[in-house]
Design a protein around this nucleic acid. Structure first.
Length: 155
DNA sequence: GCCAACGTTGGC
DNA sequence: GCCAACGTTGGC
């Protein structure tokens, strides 16, 4: 018995890892999330869940593509790697702190759905939508089916 | 358990 | 590059 497909939005800085990078590699482990709320969302992901791929910290922040969850959650290997920027000395193999999922490319959007445009639909998206919440920096966040539909209708 | 200091995120 | 907002750390 599998639960109904769910939806997420995941942020990435295009300088570090862009939608084109994901298209090139096909599937990528979503390493480096070091925020408990974001981690907990990844822990609840299931294979096949829909992902809105979002470019942050760039000229035109916004949704640029669609991906999907391609694995169940497992420990982020970079937490054990002393040479990694994401190394966490408090994490052990026995008790990992950080989990991730693999994300696989589905398609690029015909155009970027800019944050500025998304904000104009803030009322329809609802107050609980973390992307447009004042001050929110969450890099992995849930999207309802209605929000998914609305956002993609802007494409 | 409080909270000041610090580091990070990410829009602008 | 700036800086507001936020999360984490660590002294007490």
């Amino acid at each position: 018995m599998t639960a109904r497909r769910r939806y997420w939005l995941m942020k990435s800085e295009p300088d570090a890892f862009s939608i084109d990078d994901l298209q090139r590699v096909g599937t990528e482990p979503w390493t480096g999330v070091r925020n408990y709320q974001a981690r907990n969302f990844m822990r609840s992901m299931q294979v096949g869940d829909g992902v809105l791929f979002y470019h942050s910290n760039c000229d035109v922040p916004g949704i640029v593509g669609i991906a999907k969850v391609a694995s169940t959650p497992y420990p982020d290997p970079t937490q054990f790697d002393r040479k990694s920027d994401y190394y966490d000395p408090k994490a052990t193999q026995e008790q990992p702190r950080w989990d991730l999922v693999d994300v696989s490319f589905e398609r690029k959007l015909a155009r970027t759905i800019a944050l500025e445009e998304i904000r104009r639909h803030a009322d329809e998206l609802g107050e609980g939508f973390a992307l447009t919440q004042r001050g929110s920096r969450l890099s992995v966040l849930p999207v309802t089916a209605a929000q998914w539909k609305l956002l993609l209708s802007l494409e």
